[in-house]
Amino acid sequence: MSWNLALPAKVRVGHVTFGATYNYVLPIKLPHEDEAAGFGPKSYLSFSLSYSLGGH
């Protein structure tokens, strides 16, 4: 179980949309879980690219 903070950003150029999302994950230890199991905050960056086929 964890809390996740996501900060997305998107830029559209014509029919193409570029996206980037920063994610910060803060795990929450459950009562039955061992604390030495590698818990700790983590972060990562994800990217996306999409193309619109039609419309405005």
Rank of each mutant, 00 (worst) to 15 (best):
G14I: 03
F47R: 07
L49Y: 03
L53G: 02
V13D: 08
P41M: 08
Y22D: 11
A6Y: 10
S50L: 01
G38M: 05
V25Q: 00
A20I: 09
L5K: 09
R12I: 04
F18D: 01
Y24V: 06
K29Y: 08
H32W: 15
L30N: 05
D34L: 10
A9F: 05
A20W: 10
L7R: 01
I28P: 01
T21D: 05
V13N: 08
S2L: 14
A20C: 13
Y44N: 10
N4W: 15
A6K: 09
K42C: 11
H32F: 15
I28G: 04
E33D: 03
H15A: 13
F47E: 08
H32I: 10
G38L: 06
S52N: 13
N23Q: 11
A20Q: 10
H32E: 11
Y44S: 07
A37V: 10
P27H: 02
L7E: 04
A6M: 12
G54N: 14
L30V: 07
N4M: 12
W3F: 13
A37L: 09
L26H: 14
S52V: 14
T17W: 00
S46F: 08
V11Y: 15
T21I: 12
V13L: 11
Y51H: 05
V13M: 13
G38Y: 04
H56S: 15
P31F: 03
T21V: 11
L49T: 09
A20N: 08
K29C: 06
K29I: 12
K10P: 05
R12V: 03
T17K: 04
G14V: 01
H32A: 11
A6H: 13
Y22L: 10
K42T: 15
A37D: 12
A36G: 09
W3E: 13
V13A: 09
G14Q: 01
V13R: 07
P8I: 03
E33W: 04
A36E: 11
N23E: 07
E35K: 13
T17E: 00
Y24R: 07
L7Y: 06
Y44R: 11
A9K: 08
I28Q: 07
L26M: 15
Y44L: 10
L7T: 03
L26E: 14
N23L: 06
G40M: 00
G55T: 08
K42F: 12
E33A: 03
S46V: 05
I28V: 12
A9W: 07
H15K: 15
S52F: 15
E35F: 11
F39I: 01
Y44K: 07
L49W: 01
